[in-house]
């Protein structure tokens, strides 16, 4: 292991290390801690200029209650869910299929199609913006959740295909050959042999895509407007203009908006990191 395990160092070094780590963590998360502290303060503290002293009262329930009861926040959150979940399902389903085709079969153009997916996944959003917006408007899907979902599925298929194809490549090929010798139909090989082995990849991709899509802002402001279809990342700007300069409410609002992917990450940590670091180890 590198660096040298701390257990092999002197007692002094160990104690220093054990105090340094939490200190470093506090420094690292300082901007976030500040927001969390703001979100439980009463309005009076801000008008009195008491930003960092002891809060004059603890207003967790009042502030967060206001976010949920006196703003469009719940609607935006619900929109985000209705955009994110179908996208995850769609992109994972499509890429299971493309990954299977590109990972198992050898045919002319295999690598070209694969590289098309990878390259497309890296392009700047702006080169797609005008045509995708036109397409969405002319399909009558502007300012609808469906319009966003369809685009997200298509775009995420690029990254998901890269992921799935490499994962399937690493599966033992003998399994598929054995199934073929038995005379199992190809689609049954997909369904009964490969798909069950892909469960960890599906879990990893699902949490990753959930986070990516939940956090999308650019496409939300390009393809939607207003609380009917806008997800929470875009909605939070209207929320903030509703509560201008009321930092306690704006802080509470952004914490609420950030919570679902954070919760997802802490619940599915192993899958999340496995997905994110795929390829970091050969």
């Amino acid at each position: 292991m590198f660096p040298t395990p701390i257990e092999k160092r002197s007692r002094g070094a160990q104690i220093t290390y054990q105090t340094l780590v939490p200190l470093a963590l506090i420094m690292w998360l300082l901007p976030l801690i500040a927001v969390a502290l703001f979100s439980v303060r009463p309005l009076a503290d801000f008008t009195n200029g008491n930003y960092w002293g002891v809060p004059s009262s603890f207003e967790f329930f009042t502030n967060y209650g206001k976010v949920f009861l006196e703003s469009d926040m719940p609607r935006y959150m619900w929109n985000s869910i209705l955009i994110t979940v179908p996208t995850v399902v769609g992109a994972v389903a499509l890429s299971c299929m493309t990954g299977f085709a590109l990972g198992i079969y050898r045919f002319r153009g295999n690598l070209i199609i694969f590289f098309m997916f990878i390259a497309g996944n890296f392009v700047p959003f702006q080169i797609l913006m005008v045509p995708v917006r036109d397409l969405t408007v002319s399909a009558g899907l502007y300012d609808t959740k469906l319009g966003l979902v369809l685009f997200h599925i298509a775009f995420q298929t690029g990254f998901c295909t890269l992921f799935m194809r490499n994962f399937i490549r690493a599966l033992p090929y003998e399994l598929i050959e054995a199934a073929r010798v038995e005379g199992v139909a190809e689609w049954r090989i997909f369904w009964y042999v490969v798909l069950p082995l892909m469960k960890p990849a599906i879990a990893a991709l699902a949490v990753l895509i959930f986070t990516f899509i939940w956090n999308d802002y650019f496409w939300a402001i390009v393809l939607t407007q207003g609380p009917d279809a806008q997800p929470v990342t875009a909605g939070i700007t209207s929320f903030n203009s509703q509560f201008v300069a009321q930092y306690h409410l704006m802080s509470a609002g952004s914490i609420v908006a950030a919570l679902p992917p954070v919760a997802m990450f802490f619940l599915m940590q192993r899958h999340f990191i496995a997905g994110l670091t795929l390829g970091a180890v050969k």
Partner: peptide, 22 residues
């Protein structure tokens, strides 16, 4: 045919929403 069928929906989506807009 199998890889073709499996690729079709994904590639179609990608062509419409990513490649052709470029």
């Amino acid at each position: 045919l199998t890889p073709l069928m499996f690729l079709l929906p994904g590639v179609l989506f990608f062509l419409v929403y990513v490649i052709s807009p470029i």
